[in-house]
């Protein structure tokens, strides 16, 4: 995550420098969340419940989860905060909840730094994903294609053409 975007990432001072390893509480020794499919699956579920888009493929959510784990792994304090949050989700039975119960549970932890790390990172990452843009119908950069002047800037046809100067 760029330095600049942290200015709009509130409630997650935790989201700082990128690191590559994530310890897990699950076993001894040097630990890496990438090796923990159960935890990744839980995080995926959490994001999908919090930001439910039926038309987004898993690939979009997976890239977002990678960004969350990257944002969480800045220092030992952040890592343990994140790991504890994941652990608490499991203890609450999150894995077995239906979507309505899972949503209600996330609402109950909305104010925690753990949740805000997930929320803030997702807002800045999921909706900056080019595959997501394509699904939402956003065409992005246009200058190198000559702008939208010949690509539909005025193609709305379900309303009459209005005047463009004052009477």
């Amino acid at each position: 995550m760029g330095v600049s975007r942290r200015f709009v990432l509130q409630g997650s001072a935790a989201a700082t420098a990128l690191a590559t390893t994530m310890p897990s509480f699950a076993r001894a020794g040097t630990i890496n969340v990438a090796d923990d499919p159960e935890m990744k699956a839980r995080l995926m579920r959490m994001v999908k419940v919090a930001f439910p888009h039926g038309q987004f493929p898993d690939s979009c959510y997976e890239r977002n989860c990678d960004a969350i784990m990257g944002a969480a792994s800045g220092n030992p304090g952040q890592i343990t905060m994140f790991m504890q949050g994941m652990h608490d989700l499991k203890d609450a039975g999150f894995d077995d909840m239906d979507d309505a119960a899972a949503l209600a549970h996330l609402q109950s932890i909305e104010g925690t730094p753990f949740f805000q790390l997930m929320r803030g990172t997702t807002v800045l990452t999921l909706y900056n994903d080019h595959e997501v843009w394509e699904i939402l119908g956003y065409e992005g950069a246009s200058f190198d294609q000559g702008g939208y002047i010949n690509r539909g800037f005025n193609d709305l046809d379900w309303l009459p053409d209005p005047r463009i100067t004052e009477l």
Binding site: G152, N154, L159, D161, P162, I164
Partner: peptide
Amino acid sequence: PLAANNNYKV
């Protein structure tokens, strides 16, 4: 004047 774009039409 600039031409009307889609957002302006609405």
